[in-house]
Write a protein that binds this DNA or RNA. Structure first.
Length: 306
DNA sequence: AGGTCGGCCTGGCAGC
DNA sequence: TGCTGCCAGGCCGACC
């Protein structure tokens, strides 16, 4: 599933291919993709516009078009963007014909883009003006892990007082942008923090290790050009290689690369989560003692069975 | 109001 | 072998 490193990989490959070209034709097959706009409305808004810049924020792929028009594309679980695919790939949802690059370019023939998405979770949202774009992003995304402002202190402030498991916090895009299930597991392993540890209970030292774990696992993902577990592909259809370098993710039953303990799969924040419970010790169960209650006496609270 | 959970969707696979 | 049904999960909205 495309997370920050996968979207970054797409941007690095796609930007040089599309920037400066004009969108000549758009065909949106799936009305869910363009919601709330009808496909025809979005097609009309995009057609004829020059692509000035392509970049990324969190897991969003951002198309900046002439006339201060922006398309915020999200690949969700299974989306990919292919350039001049041959033959026509399965599960094509959106097709885009881009014109040649204007002057002088001999033999420049234009590009055909196909957005594929087997599970149809992906979306493309039209934003009129950079103010609309910025408020759209601000409502959804926290700090970028590669921003200078992403310091240990910033991370601690974001986690302070939170009782939700740290893994849930990492997956919350409004706190940190771009981390998904894969990189959350990898970052927590690197930081030697158990995914179920309450976010607000991290020590300063742990927060520092977590910051490093987030940045280094995302960087490793970018260096490997993303992870292709199932559907993620480069724009030429090639797979990323980070899935071969996971330290714990998807490695249940295998030995921990650090200590050899068998990696376990648990559920945290409702997601399949991979952990070495020797390197990442389980949080101690707090004796939830209220003031005045008999010390250590009460039976454990029943948890909702699910 | 912070936190949890179900719905969206379909390919793949376990189990019979 | 072939069918059924369950699971995966990013994000959003409903709910407690």
């Amino acid at each position: 599933m495309p997370e920050l490193p996968e979207v970054e990989t797409i941007v690095r490959q796609l930007a040089p291919v599309v920037e400066g070209r004009r969108i000549e034709r758009v065909e949106i097959d799936d009305p869910r993709w363009s919601r709330p706009l009808a496909p025809a409305e979005l097609q009309d808004a995009l057609r004829g516009r020059r692509i000035e810049r392509l970049d990324r924020r969190g897991k969003y792929l951002l198309w900046h078009l002439e006339g201060d028009i922006h398309l915020a594309q999200h690949l969700r679980m299974t989306g990919s963007v292919l350039a001049d695919p041959e033959p026509e790939p399965a599960h094509a949802r959106v097709r885009m014909e881009l014109g040649p690059r204007g002057k002088g370019g001999r033999g420049d023939e234009g590009v055909r883009l196909v957005i594929c998405d087997p599970r149809r979770f992906g979306t493309g949202e039209l934003l009129l003006g950079s103010e609309a774009l910025e408020s759209f992003l601000a409502a959804r995304l926290g700090l970028e892990p590669f921003d200078e402002g992403f310091t240990t202190e910033h991370l601690r402030a974001a986690l302070r007082g939170r009782r939700a498991p740290i893994k849930a916090m990492l997956l919350d895009q409004r706190r940190i942008a771009g981390v998904g299930n894969i990189y959350a597991d990898e970052a927590l392993f690197r930081a030697r923090i158990h995914p179920l540890r309450p976010a607000g209970a991290l020590t300063r030292e742990q927060a520092e290790r977590l910051r490093e774990g987030i940045v280094s696992s995302l960087q490793a993902g970018i260096d490997a050009r993303g992870a292709s577990i199932d559907d993620f592909r480069h724009i030429d259809g090639v797979r990323g290689s980070f899935q071969d370098r996971f330290l714990v993710h998807l490695r249940a039953g295998e030995p921990c690369p650090r200590c050899g303990t068998t990696i376990r799969k648990i559920v945290a924040a409702g997601r399949g989560t991979y952990v070495c419970e020797s390197c990442q010790p389980r949080p101690r169960r707090r004796a939830l003692r209220r003031p005045g209650a008999p010390p250590g006496g009460r039976p454990p609270r029943r948890r909702a069975a699910r």
